[in-house]
């Protein structure tokens, strides 16, 4: 065999290997959509087969149709819930990160506040909702507060853990270069904690959606939670499902938005490996 023949053969082998890899990646990326389509199809065709009415279980297409016809109603209420969620989340994110810094830098603050935070976490916050209505009224405030309350703790914990996980050698390193604490924080502590902080934020934003919706369940005149409750009380199961799907969509989209920011802000340790 000549040299070129050997290299040709190698070339071909490599191309085949790449092809096989591409096929595998394609199959993997199609796995989740395929499962989703199968579940939806079972749902769509199973409902008439079982003789269920839309009042018990509407089909996916009926729900989609309903979202189309009632989009204005749904959109208005979605905006209400979204604003409550984002406001609560924003306060939780900023407040949580600041609390975590205080806990990290002050031993006294940690001793004074951390146990209380943990204790507070054991309170089922859903049970606070009626009280919040009493104190904060029927409007925006209790929903926002509930969203904040649910989202706050994971941000604090994740940030504290991230700050504490830093290799002490890194601190020695920048100290040896003459860094002050502010420089140590900006150059080392914060960037090293960012993956944890974003992890906390992602958990938090999902919880903020739940907080806002629960707030609406208890007492509200607007919002997707309110809409869903109204629909259920009127046996409008299709609208109830439509609201549910949009609530889930808010969760997915906000989560995804944070991930997008994370990808720009944080160097992924694993990505380069």
């Amino acid at each position: 065999m000549t040299h070129t023949e050997i290299s040709d053969q190698k070339h071909q082998e490599r191309r085949q290997r790449r092809k096989r890899r591409n096929v595998r990646l394609l199959v993997e990326s199609l796995a989740a959509p395929t499962v989703a389509i199968i579940v939806l199809a079972l749902w769509q065709f199973g409902v008439p087969l079982l003789g269920l009415s839309a009042f018990i279980l509407p089909t996916p297409l009926q729900i989609v149709e309903r979202i189309g016809t009632d989009y204005r109603l749904l959109l208005n209420n979605t905006l209400v819930t979204l604003v409550e969620t984002l406001a609560g989340f924003a306060i939780a994110a900023v407040g949580g990160v600041i609390t975590a810094f205080a806990i990290f830098y002050s031993r006294l603050f940690e001793r004074a506040v951390y146990p209380l935070l943990v204790a507070m976490q054991t309170i089922p916050k859903v049970a606070l909702a009626p009280l919040l209505v009493l104190y904060l009224g029927y409007d925006f405030a209790p929903k926002c507060f509930l969203a904040f309350l649910l989202a706050y703790f994971p941000v604090v914990i994740a940030t504290v853990v991230g700050l504490k996980a830093l290799d002490k050698g890194m601190v020695d390193l920048v100290r040896s270069m003459g860094a002050n604490e502010w420089q140590t924080f900006i150059k080392i502590r914060l960037p090293a904690a960012l993956p944890n902080i974003f992890g906390g934020l992602k958990v938090a934003v999902s919880l903020a959606v739940i907080g806002a919706v629960i707030g609406e369940y208890v007492a509200a005149e607007r919002g997707l939670g309110y809409l869903q409750l109204q629909a259920s009380s009127q046996f409008d199961t299709t609208l109830s499902f439509a609201s549910l799907i949009i609530i889930a969509a808010i969760g997915v989209v906000t989560f995804w938005a944070i991930e997008l920011v994370e990808r720009r802000a944080v160097f992924q340790r694993e990505a380069a490996k």
Partner: peptide, 8 residues
Amino acid sequence: QTDLLLYW
């Protein structure tokens, strides 16, 4: 002892 490079 360890390189202590900042991975980001």
